[in-house]
Design a protein around this nucleic acid. Structure first.
Length: 856
RNA sequence: GCCGGAGUGGCGAAAUUGGUAUACGCACCAGACUCAAAAUCUGGCGAGGUCAAACUCAUGUCGGUUCGAGUCCGACCUCCGGCACCA
């Protein structure tokens, strides 16, 4: 062992040893309790950034912690290796996407190994390899078989500059996320997965995870699914046998409906206006606002579109009141939510109110606020409160119905239920739940993805590829012009095939799948990564799943996590797994940001902003151990982490000090007193006694912090333990056998607890302390055992009387007797008194940090 | 606008059930070592006040509960994040 700390030597040594001994390989047959720790799999962009380092440092700390406690830990990694950047590299630089991807993986794997992350590399997977995406295709076919995969004509976001299709997220605000060009709409036949079938479960099953997922993630998922409870109501059309179905969440306001409003692209419009003189005007208007909506997508979401509408001249019949009200067409009604038609109730809906004001439609109040008198079970009056007052804004709360026929005087909550029942019994409506979520469009008109395993035959139509013919292998290469349709369409030997049913010439589907498909089930593949006959063996997966702890950025809080929850529910339905929720606990880590040069702004590190920090530079300058320690110490894991270079020096200093201290003590312990466990507390000198107390308090704190993922404070606790040891170290050594025991206990505890943060140095020091087996190789759990007697801060409750009254709270270590406390309270106490001018109100006694008594 | 979350030193941040506010670290200041610097070590470090102390004031603002409030309650201000015409 060297006297000085050389991180590069220690880290290389242990990384090699871990590799050779397969230290982190998880074994299916290991009988110990399992722990599945998962980090979101990275896209192989070429380089690790500090966000990755933070993610993996958190996951690794937890994995080490669980291993040291004796769990059988699965900690895998892989590559989300399909996707656009590889294809962009092909378009721009003529590189083969496969070559580009494989080279990136090699580089990033090297970076991860230099960081010393404890992955089970034997389970590494990559989405772009046929042995993986074969099972994407298999799942697709299973969904097809169950009617969950279907094709429909659907508008896509088309970037005219790049000539590619963009996802909604990539084109938000109507501009391409990469090139900034205005996005156009085009209609293409696209494959969809029926995630809407699972909308209810996606909301309902949240109760299983609501304790262990961040509230903000659950909320965003809830919003995304957008469940709302209401009713469908059919309005008849005057002089016609047509009817207009509307969806409302406020059926209780239906007597206040003064119009029915259709979305501009509502299919009924042309039918209703057949023969009407207004037909041309309305259709022109509808075409105008539809076009406006698709081209001038809002860039600033804060600016609301102006409401525009046109009276169609048609009248609709309110089925409750029999009243005839005009049918309007307006841009504020959306075709793709509900039925594309609403009943307009200006008095009780803000949007309808605004619309009614603009076009001078009548505003009729039918809900009145509940007064105290009415709440107190007085006979409800059917008269409104304050009918004469003109409304200045919509009253959107629940209340009491007025001007509502037989329901006058009924409470909103009651009326909603009764009116829905009436509608159903009379056959003009029913209670219903609608969702905002849409089916998941998975078609991508690109090369670098898993081909959709479908064949089109002129005879047999759309034919699924037989399971035994999988995988449908992506061709080696294609023509990457960056324009037009999928590059796959230009590869004749791929497209041209024979129909599996009739054997005649047929064409393959040239769309590939969204990469979110790959990432929806990848962590099941880790449990059985080399299986050639199934996505995974359900029996083996059962051994490891569900994931105990998932860690990643909250940029995936909605889509990835919704999709993977959906996928798991489908897997349960086809009998592959037995649970509905794939992830027990979720942690969304904060971003790592850096100051953008020349500004006051802190932004996520990125190449384009030039504020990136290369992890390799960090490792070279400070060592992986220090870099990882600092990134976990600097802020709570869920906070944004502002990267400050000087902070990392503190981490290096700490490790260096621990290193030299262990080195010094190791000599002293080996030449000095034999250590032996003491019979009782009195065998310790006061300094050693204090050390013991600190050791066990630290064990308690660090253990508790790990359970709650408060990694920053556990590092603080370890630093405090070091400081206590260093104070003892500075005193002349008079170590007895008991004191030597206390010192070794503290040193070993410190080293073991440092391991999750800085595993290389911990292994080295553990070896120096005389353990030849390595931290994980000894066959038993080495996480320090907590002696609660010694960790306890509060033990004695001592009544102290003042004027016959008292309240007391006493804090003391286990080695402090009641006598001592009393003495301290009398002799050493710092007494503060407060008066209100006449008499003493209270006394606070604070002796030697042991007692805090408040009496009156 | 709606829904979440957060406001504590120069900075990142601590603070079981309400119980010594500012742990731990960064930066900074002074001293030791050094020809000098770096590194290292020792001490200091919320504000006011004092030779030093006592003491006073400090957890976004104002009020309340309590012997005691960063923590609980009410009102407000500011910042960050998400959503956005979802009927």
């Amino acid at each position: 062992m060297n006297e000085k700390y050389f991180p590069e030597v220690i880290e290389a040594k242990w990384q090699q040893r871990w590799d050779e001994t397969g230290a982190f390989i998880a074994r299916d047959e290991d009988p110990r309790a399992k722990f599945y720790c998962l980090e979101m799999l990275p896209y192989p962009s070429g380089y690790l950034h500090m966000g990755h380092v933070r993610n993996y440092s958190i996951g690794d700390a937890l994995s080490w912690y669980k291993r040291l406690q004796g769990f059988n830990v699965l900690h895998p990694i892989g590559w989300d290796s399909f996707g656009q950047p590889a294809e962009q590299a092909a378009i721009k630089r003529g590189v083969n996407p496969r070559t580009w991807t494989e080279e990136n993986i090699v580089h990033m794997r090297g970076q991860m190994k230099r960081l010393g992350i404890s992955y089970d590399w034997s389970r590494e997977i990559a989405a772009h390899r046929p042995e993986y995406y074969k099972w994407d295709q298999w799942f697709f076919l299973k969904m097809f078989e169950h009617g969950l995969a279907y094709k429909k004509l659907s508008p896509v976001n088309w970037c005219p500059k790049e000539g590619t299709v963009l996802s909604n997220e990539q084109s938000s605000g109507g501009i391409c996320w990469r090139c900034g060009a205005a996005v156009e709409k085009r209609n293409l036949e696209q494959w969809f997965l029926r995630i809407t079938d699972y909308a209810e479960q996606l909301v309902a099953d949240m109760k299983e995870i609501e304790e262990a997922w961040p509230e903000k993630v659950l909320k965003r998922q809830r919003d995304w699914v957008g469940r709302s409870v209401g009713a469908y109501i059919d309005f008849g059309v005057q002089d016609s046998d047509q009817k207009v179905s509307v969806f409302t969440t406020r059926i209780d306001t239906i007597y206040g409906a003064t119009a029915v409003v259709l979305a501009p692209d509502h299919p009924l419009i042309s039918e209703l206006l057949e023969g009407s003189t207004l037909k041309d005007d309305v259709q022109k208007f509808a075409a105008k606002v539809t076009a406006a909506a698709s081209t001038s997508a809002r860039r600033d979401p804060a600016e609301e579109e102006i409401k525009e509408g046109l009276n169609s001249g048609v009248l609709a019949i309110n089925p409750f009141s029999g009243e005839a009200i005009p049918v309007w067409v307006a841009n504020y009604v959306l075709m793709d939510y509900g039925t594309g038609a609403v009943m307009s109730v200006p008095a009780h809906d803000e949007r309808d109110f605004e619309f009614a004001q603009k076009y001078s439609l009548p505003i009729r109040q039918v809900i009145a606020p509940v007064t105290h008198a009415q709440q107190a079970a007085e006979p409800l009056s059917t008269k409104g409160t304050d009918q004469s007052a003109e409304m200045h804004q919509a009253f959107t709360e629940y209340g009491v119905l007025i001007n509502s026929g037989e329901w006058g005087g009924t409470l909103s909550e009651v009326a909603m239920k009764e009116m829905a029942e009436r509608a159903e019994s009379k056959g003009f409506g029913r209670a219903a739940v609608t969702y905002r979520i849409r089916d998941w469009g998975i078609s991508r008109q690109r090369f670098w993805g898993a081909p959709v395993p479908i064949i089109y035959c002129d005879n047999c139509g759309t034919v699924p590829v037989p399971l035994e013919d999988l995988p449908v292998v992506l061709p080696e290469t294609a023509e990457f012009s960056g324009t037009g349709e999928s590059p796959l369409a230009g590869v004749a030997e791929f497209v041209n095939t024979t129909c599996p049913t009739c054997n005649r010439p047929a064409r393959r589907e040239t769309d590939t799948m969204d990469t979110f498909v790959d990432s929806s089930w990848y962590f099941f593949r880790y449990t059985d990564p080399r299986n050639e006959s199934a996505a995974f063996d359900p029996a083996i997966a059962k051994r490891w799943t569900p994931v105990d702890q998932y860690i990643g950025g909250d940029s995936h809080a909605v889509m990835h996590l919704i999709y993977t929850r959906f996928w798991t529910k489908f897997m349960r339905d086809i009998g592959l797994v037995s649970f509905a929720e794939p992830v027990q606990k979720l942690l969304t880590q904060g971003m790592v940001t850096n100051r953008v040069e020349g500004t006051e702004e802190w932004k996520a590190m990125s190449k384009s902003l030039g504020n990136g920090v290369d992890p390799d530079d960090m490792i070279e300058a400070f060592g992986a151990d220090a870099a990882r320690l600092f990134i976990l110490f600097a802020a709570p894991v869920e906070n944004e982490l502002r990267w400050i270079e000087s902070g990392i020096e503190g981490a290096v200093r700490f490790l260096r000090k621990v290193y030299t201290m262990v080195w010094r003590w190791q000599e002293r312990l080996s030449t000095g007193q034999k250590e032996s466990a003491p019979a009782n507390a009195d065998d310790f000198t006061p300094a050693a006694r204090a050390l013991r107390r600190k050791t066990h308090q630290t064990i308690a704190r660090v253990t508790d912090d790990f359970e709650h993922l408060h990694l920053n404070t556990s590092v603080s606790a370890l630093m405090e333990l070091y400081n206590t040891l260093a104070d003892l170290d500075a005193q002349p050594s008079t170590a007895s056998a008991s004191d030597a025991f206390a010192v070794r206990e503290a040193l070993e505890g410190l080293v073991v607890m440092v391991a999750p943060f800085s595993p290389h140095i911990a292994e080295e020091l553990w070896e120096n302390l005389g353990h030849s087996q390595g931290l994980l190789g000894s066959g038993w759990a080495v996480w320090p055992r907590l002696d609660e007697q010694w960790a306890r801060k509060e033990e004695l409750e001592i009544p102290i009387q003042v004027n016959g009254k008292l309240r007391s709270r006493v804090m003391a270590g286990p080695d402090v007797s009641e006598e001592e406390l009393r003495k301290a309270a009398l002799a050493d106490a710092k007494v503060r008194s407060f008066t209100d001018g006449h008499e003493v109100l209270k006394v606070v006694v604070v002796p030697r940090r042991l007692v805090n008594i408040v009496v009156r």
